[in-house]
Design a protein around this nucleic acid. Structure first.
Lengths: 332, 332
DNA sequence: TTGTAAGCGTTATCAG
DNA sequence: CTGATAACGCTTACAA
């Protein structure tokens, strides 16, 4: 319905204060060239009438909305909400609003979201989506919208990016394990979990091939309960292994299933969580993990975008390295 | 800079297609009364020029933005992001965009956020903030913005609400424990954690007083690590107790500290997590908790708002009851 | 079926 | 220092 009708407009304020539109506009924008007297008069009627400028009209007139579009996957993961948290903090410090665009793990929808970002007239966008290709991201920048792509290596005039360094570290971890460890390694393949996991899986495979080691790929659902049950089955026949799981929940599923099957950690079963969060430290045994501070990534992304919009982003591509945190689920 | 300058406008499309503004507008809005021929002609030039309508201008002209404002606390808790997730899903199904406004646990800032919601010209708002009083929420509705308040009992013409039922259940749990349990109960008081926890704490206290039982209030930080260390100290002198903690992380801190102090769960120490999430089931021993499906709350809130905006919200107030889930950290 | 023109609530460029 | 007035990009009666 007419929910935003009968809103007080700048026009009514002007009339009530006995000045012109222009003067009111000057007051609310803190322009100089306004007598203290008129300013006070205007401010009084503003608060008397409860006038709030329409950000919409302002945006239309000025060509800047102070809105930042944020594209994130729909999945409700802790590391995503950590990043979102970093984004909101940094946005607030800079006076930006955040418009949220969520995408499923499905390319078509991601492109839809892109289109919405464009039509929504944001001043800039931060795109964290595992499905979008370089060309899709490029498209938005052809609309003159400055973009920071997270987990997507792509730069151009109006595009910067933050990439994650997982492969090197993983390779190091594996190679080091090959020298001292003796268990067979398994990678938990999650269907449709996006390019990040796929890339890590590829790295896992090639490292094994390069070292001429055998390995296993285990398909699993992206759910704690389902994975727990699957591993209860699995451990009926297999009694040891080193498992790499996407997230802490999945790692916990393996750990719990192993213990409930009478296996010891890390003697029989070792587990590494790829995208570790604070829960890796809360769950017992504490979970060894690869870690990236996603909240920091969020803050950093917003800062880069801010610089990019101001035309003074010097380093268009930064890489955030993950670190290995040894805890109780691995021997080293 | 001029990031949204040299954007293709409806005017250019009209000229290029050899029709008027109005016709282009009709095409993009799927109005009938357009020849198939002209429609095709227009659509072709639209895609040729890569034209995207400006949601801003549309909103200004139609008085509806399809934007929903969401006010949530800045705190990065799982249950909050669960709710946000439910909101985004339901919003997407209805074609709304979400504008995010985060607040610290600080009233002034919350009011600031309220003002931004008003100026940002959203079609409606969902407010989940523990600091805002009834009057603050009322204020926004005086701007004709339909609002659903979460965890705030307040209704009026344009305001509906969802409240949480924790007190009754807690009272039942406590009274039942009084008959069979023998440990002293402690409530973890978290400073500035908002009204929800304060209300629950009050309920905890009065139930004890009514039953003429002694109890303890323990101040703690809203941090796993700090709380863990505090309880390592605590358990040096106190060897048993039934502890009620705000969230799973805090409950886990107590559990881990108890075990690391050689205490048995639930024989010596019992723990109840007040706002349980899926982690209550992942952590071992699994944590008994009170549970509300926050994702559902989010979806429900969006549905109510949608109805409210359409003027057909019949039940302006709904109460979501929490349920007790007995797991391994309590005897019953 | 299509075009003309007024209006949405601001800002910004001019004169005065 | 202040006031007209033209944008901003779109929708929508009203005319044609």
């Amino acid at each position: 319905m007419d929910n935003i009708k009968d809103r007080v407009t700048i026009y009514e304020v002007a009339k009530a204060a006995g000045v012109s539109l222009a003067t009111v506009s000057r007051v609310i924008n803190n322009h100089k060239n306004v007598t203290l007297e008129t300013r006070k008069k205007v401010e009084d009627t503003i608060s008397r009438l409860g006038y709030k400028p329409s950000a919409l009209a302002q945006a239309l007139a000025t060509n800047r909305s102070t809105n930042i579009g944020v594209v994130i996957p729909r999945a409700n993961y802790v590391y995503i909400s950590n990043m979102l948290n970093g984004l909101t903090e940094a946005a607030r410090d800079r006076g930006y609003m955040l418009s949220l665009f969520v995408t499923s793990h499905n390319k078509e929808e991601a492109i839809q979201a892109m289109n919405k970002v464009i039509t929504s007239h944001v001043d800039g966008a931060i795109i964290f989506d595992d499905e979008l290709d370089v060309e899709d991201t490029q498209k938005i920048s052809s609309y003159q919208v400055p973009v920071i792509a997270v987990n997507n290596k792509i730069t151009s005039d109006k595009v910067g990016c933050i990439t994650f360094g997982y492969e090197h570290l993983l390779r190091d971890i594996l190679n080091s394990y090959f020298t001292s460890g003796e268990k067979k390694m398994y990678f938990l393949h999650v269907h449709n979990a996006g390019r990040l996991l796929a890339r890590i899986e590829r790295s896992f495979v090639t490292t094994h091939i390069d070292a001429n080691k055998s390995y296993g790929i285990l398909s699993c659902d992206d759910s704690y309960t389902k994975t727990y049950l699957d591993f209860i089955e699995f451990f009926k026949t297999t009694k040891s292994g080193y498992f790499l799981a996407y997230r802490d929940s999945l790692a916990a599923a393996i750990i719990n299933a192993a213990r409930d099957s009478g296996l010891r950690i890390p003697e029989d079963v070792e587990v590494l969580s790829i995208i570790g969060t604070k829960y890796a430290n809360i769950i017992r045994p504490t979970i060894s993990s690869m870690y990236i501070d996603m909240q920091l990534v969020g803050r950093k992304a917003m800062q880069m975008l801010s610089d990019l919009m101001a035309g003074k982003l010097s380093q268009k591509q930064i890489k955030v390295e993950s670190t290995f945190i040894k805890r109780d689920t691995t021997k080293e």
